[in-house]
Design a protein around this nucleic acid. Structure first.
Lengths: 220, 220
DNA sequence: AATTAATTTTAGACAAAGCTAAAAAATTGT
DNA sequence: ACAATTTTTTAGCTTTGTCTAAAATTAATT
């Protein structure tokens, strides 16, 4: 598999992760920062290799084989992210770009040994689950703060928007991965939410609330 | 820099490491497992970027800029080798292939943090020195067993031939990196050498003796 | 010194991955 | 239902790195 093929497979996986229907050429093009015509070319190639199901004008979906390839790349990506944060002291927001490169390293032995070295982690630093060798993983029950009722409590495990600006904001407000938050109050008219943090309580805007994921500990 | 460019730079560096004259197109082609015409093409490209000095039919040498690129790749390669052996428990002979991939990962931060994580090692698992960020490194004084007189003593730090067969042989004879050997006797008529090891003394053929490097502790 | 041999370079082609512009199919709006 | 719009595909071209075959240069041999 070439690097480019792997990137396409990953993109298609992520685009069909939740709405598991077939994916549009345009959507892939946008995700991959390329042109629809290029996508068509690559999709044909992936179809030849029976990594995707493809019929002209009908969109694309991963075949079972393709899905396993995607999960193996995601496994590698997330294990490397754990390594970068746990062992090399990268901060949460720096890891993605490097992991995008590391995920393409080809060596099963390497990944097995890395997994062992890290103590067989179940989730990456963003709280996303790490598939095992066979592509099996437990879907996390993470929810956006904006989706939770007052009284909910959970561990901060991820962000939607990983722009530098947003991550700066989190840093400034002492919000970090692994922190436990409780929803104290939801303001009706603007959707802002007051949450308790280690260092007290803060009010966050609706925009922030729709970007922060919690792993739910106790929902009531 | 593309992956291929980096590989050529590295090949040229290694070919001119000891005999520091200019390198022949054919030699590069052999090293890179490619055709001389392809080498010519790439060398022109590298010359455009002033990474090498090149005049038609006159061979190639690295420019200062090219030399620094080579050393930065070698630094990365060797640091990753240390990581694989020290942290992931790879054996000495498995690391090269994986490190060849890892050396191309582009992130200065990653290498800095990896270096720190490994405790700023000076040599890789084969005993080869690791250049620092500025490309400075101390040349090791390693010699082949076949080059040493009786009575010499040193630490086994490397091999010439890293074929699976040879590495298997070493394993079987309990010869490993870091072991200290002493030259006990050199047989005139066939060049075989008797050396002391931890587990006693063994006789090795001339062929083996020309493939094992020692870092000299005491030469007399 | 001249011919042969070896090495190196050029010229022209190919596969991968991308692009632009134009054609074809599907979708939408009225 | 049919015209307009959007989406997708095709066709043809570019770049990167490679190849083969042939030409040019250098080295070797007699």
């Amino acid at each position: 598999m070439t690097l480019s093929e792997e990137d396409y497979i990953k993109a298609i996986y992520h685009l069909s992760e939740f709405n598991s229907t077939s994916v549009a050429t345009n959507a892939i093009a946008e995700q991959m920062q390329t042109k629809p015509s290029s996508v068509t070319d690559m999709v044909k190639k992936l179809s030849e290799k029976s990594l995707v199901n493809y019929k002209k004008y009908q969109g694309v979906s991963l075949s079972e084989k393709g899905r396993l390839v995607a999960l193996s790349i995601i496994r590698k990506h997330r294990l490397w992210e754990v390594f970068l944060v746990d062992k090399l002291n990268f901060s949460w927001d720096e890891v993605h770009v490097v992991a995008e490169q590391l995920e393409h390293i080809k060596s099963d032995t390497l990944i097995d040994k890395l997994d062992a070295h890290l103590g067989y982690p179940k989730v990456d630093p963003h709280g996303d689950p790490i598939p095992n060798k066979d592509g099996v993983f437990t879907k996390s029950i993470k929810k956006l703060i904006s989706e939770l009722p007052v009284g909910s409590q959970g561990v901060c495990v991820g962000v939607n928007d990983s722009s530098a600006a947003f991550l700066k904001f989190l840093d400034k407000n002492k919000i970090a991965l692994g922190d436990t938050f409780k929803i104290l109050e939801i303001e009706e008219f603007d959707g802002s939410v007051t949450i308790s943090t280690r260092s007290g309580s803060i009010r966050i805007s609706k925009q922030i609330a729709t970007n922060l994921y919690l792993d739910i500990v106790d929902e009531e």
